[in-house]
């Protein structure tokens, strides 16, 4: 009985959200009839642009470039963020010394960083976007992991010590599992940041990648291409979020559920 109700709710929710999307599409279609395609291309024109992108191979080429940069900058930030968090949690002195700097890094808006990066590295193909991703996502990762470390239940560590567990075992079976959900949340939070930063950086300071192609479309007044890319980006993020991160999150926090 209970399950059928929740299933019904799920179905209703799906129908509602699908309806929402259809309404937006219809609205977009109607609205575009009143404007020049330069200002608001119609859904059909956008779809044709998308098809052209696909056929020319530019869709995959640019996506791959951007993806590679995001991955590089972001894994660097992940490793560095985790390492710093671990280091700071074991050394009060380092924490007091560097914590404010990390906070300041986080407060500085990305625009400032990108301008600085262009000044420092020029319109470098890889360096500028990768630097921006790193500098923007590093504090996010650090703060998440650090708060994760602080939230480890020390009473469980005491229990493990009373029962003579080795330090290695305590690290692997007490600290690590407590940390995993924080790592996953750091990854998913940081990743959407990372994507946006890469594209932003490519838009301003690079000569390849999705951001650069968008800036070209902008310069050539190809608004329908902009729309096509927006759709590609939305789809990519959705695939990441619901195809990878949500299932991963569910898996690592399996023990939290009561079923």
């Amino acid at each position: 009985m209970k399950t059928s109700i929740s299933k019904g709710n799920n179905l209703t929710r799906r129908i509602l959200s699908t309806t929402g999307i259809i309404v937006v599409l219809i609205f977009w279609h109607k609205l575009s009839q009143n404007y020049h395609p330069l200002i608001l291309p119609s859904p059909q024109e956008t779809f044709q642009a998308l098809q052209k992108l696909w056929q020319s191979g530019s869709l995959w080429a640019s996506t791959l470039i951007t993806f590679r940069r995001t991955l590089l900058g972001y894994s660097a930030a992940l490793v560095a963020g985790m390492f710093t968090a671990l280091l700071f949690s074991t050394c009060r002195f380092l924490q007091d010394l560097f914590r404010p700097i990390i906070t300041v890094t986080q407060i500085i808006p990305p625009v400032i960083w990108i301008v600085l990066a262009v000044i420092w590295f020029g319109i470098a193909d890889d360096l500028t976007p990768i630097f921006l991703i790193f500098i923007v996502t590093f504090p996010v990762v650090f703060i998440n992991i650090f708060s994760g470390l602080e939230s480890v239940d020390l009473r469980l560590v005491e229990m493990a010590e009373v029962y003579r567990c080795s330090r290695r075992k305590i690290m692997l079976d007490v600290y690590l599992p407590a940390l995993v959900p924080h790592v996953v949340s750091a990854v998913s939070l940081g990743l959407s940041f990372a994507w946006k930063s890469t594209i932003f950086a490519e838009f301003i300071g690079s000569s390849s990648g999705i951001g650069f192609v968008i800036s070209m479309a902008n310069a050539n007044l190809e608004t329908e291409k902009l729309f096509a890319w927006a759709i590609v980006l939305i789809l990519l993020m959705l695939v990441f979020e619901y195809g990878i991160l949500t299932p991963l999150n569910k898996r690592v926090t399996r023990w939290k559920r009561h079923d």
Partner: peptide
Amino acid sequence: AYVFQEPRLLPWK
């Protein structure tokens, strides 16, 4: 061995 006043179980095991 120690039975604590409040249970101290690893929630992920």
